[in-house]
Structure formats: C-alpha cells, structure tokens
Computed example of a mutant assay.
Amino acid sequence: MDSEQPDPPRKARHRAHNRPARPHAVLLRLSDEEKAVIDTAAAVAQLTATGYAAKAAVAAASAGQAPGGATGDLRYLQHELFAARRAVVMFGNNVNQAAAAFNATGLLPDWATEAVRLCAAVVGRLDEVISQIDRELR
C-alpha cells in the first residue's frame, strides 16, 4: 500500500524582529483541524503559524471585529428573538382560550381575529430577524 508523504514544511520568510523583543505572549490552544487551517494560511502568507496568528489577532482586534460577529448585534437579535418567543407563548394562550370558548358556545370570540393578525405580525418580524442573521453570517 502506497503511503503518501506529506509535503515538507515551507520555510517562512524572514521578517524584521522587534528589538527588544515583544514582552507579551499569548498561548493558543487549537484542535488538530484549527491548527491545520492556521498552518495552511501561514504557509500561503509565508509566515510562521505564530506570526500569522499574531498578525490576524491584532488586525481583527484593531478593526473592532469580535470573533463570531459583533456582540452588540447579537444582543439586539437575541432581544428580538426573546420578544418574539414571548409573543408566540401569549398567542398559544389565546388559542387555548379561543378553543375553550368555541367548545362551550360554538362561536369564536371577537378578539380571535385580532390575535391571529398580531401573530402574523410577529411571524413577519421573525422573518426580518432571520434575514438580518443571514446577512450577518454571509
């Protein structure tokens, strides 16, 4: 059985060193997959994995980009989803009350039409929030 030999590691380009050396170190713990991704990107950039990770971290922090998106945007979306959840729970209670009234009288209460309209509005708002999440993830 032929075993493929991995390509030898590419030599990273020489970069100017800061003197005195940078005084701070950050330890990264990575999975095998994450390490492979960093190694590949570092090789393409002709940097060491450590140099690449440092440059990427500083660039992201300088641009104000939190990993996984901006926390403020996520909080806003979280609040929107919580509000929608509350509205759906309230609508569920209204459905139970309308069913009880219908079973007792054979007629739907007058407010049932308005409850359905409000539910449709909440579903529309949920669609907007989902679209915003989709845009953020692209």
Rank of each mutant, 00 (worst) to 15 (best):
53 A>Q: 01
88 V>K: 02
60 A>G: 11
89 V>C: 03
20 P>K: 09
64 G>Q: 03
77 L>I: 02
37 V>M: 13
68 G>N: 00
89 V>Y: 08
70 A>F: 08
28 L>R: 03
129 V>T: 02
115 A>G: 04
8 P>H: 05
22 R>F: 11
121 A>W: 08
98 A>C: 14
14 H>T: 12
64 G>H: 03
68 G>I: 00
49 A>K: 08
62 S>Q: 11
107 L>W: 12
65 Q>G: 01
59 A>P: 03
125 R>P: 02
116 V>S: 01
37 V>C: 10
109 P>Y: 11
95 V>D: 04
111 W>S: 09
73 D>W: 06
87 A>G: 10
101 A>I: 13
28 L>I: 06
59 A>T: 10
11 K>C: 07
78 Q>T: 14
68 G>F: 00
22 R>D: 12
14 H>Q: 11
65 Q>Y: 06
118 L>N: 09
102 F>T: 12
111 W>P: 02
126 L>W: 05
114 E>R: 15
57 A>T: 03
19 R>V: 12
104 A>E: 15
78 Q>K: 12
41 A>E: 13
91 F>E: 05
52 Y>W: 15
27 L>G: 12
12 A>K: 08
97 Q>Y: 07
130 I>K: 01
57 A>D: 03
97 Q>M: 13
73 D>K: 10
26 V>W: 09
90 M>G: 06
72 G>D: 05
57 A>K: 01
11 K>R: 15
123 V>N: 02
59 A>G: 09
64 G>E: 06
113 T>Q: 10
12 A>D: 05
20 P>H: 09
127 D>L: 00
79 H>G: 13
79 H>E: 13
38 I>E: 08
121 A>S: 12
129 V>I: 04
25 A>I: 10
14 H>G: 06
49 A>N: 11
10 R>G: 14
46 Q>S: 13
124 G>A: 05
128 E>N: 02
19 R>G: 08
130 I>Y: 00
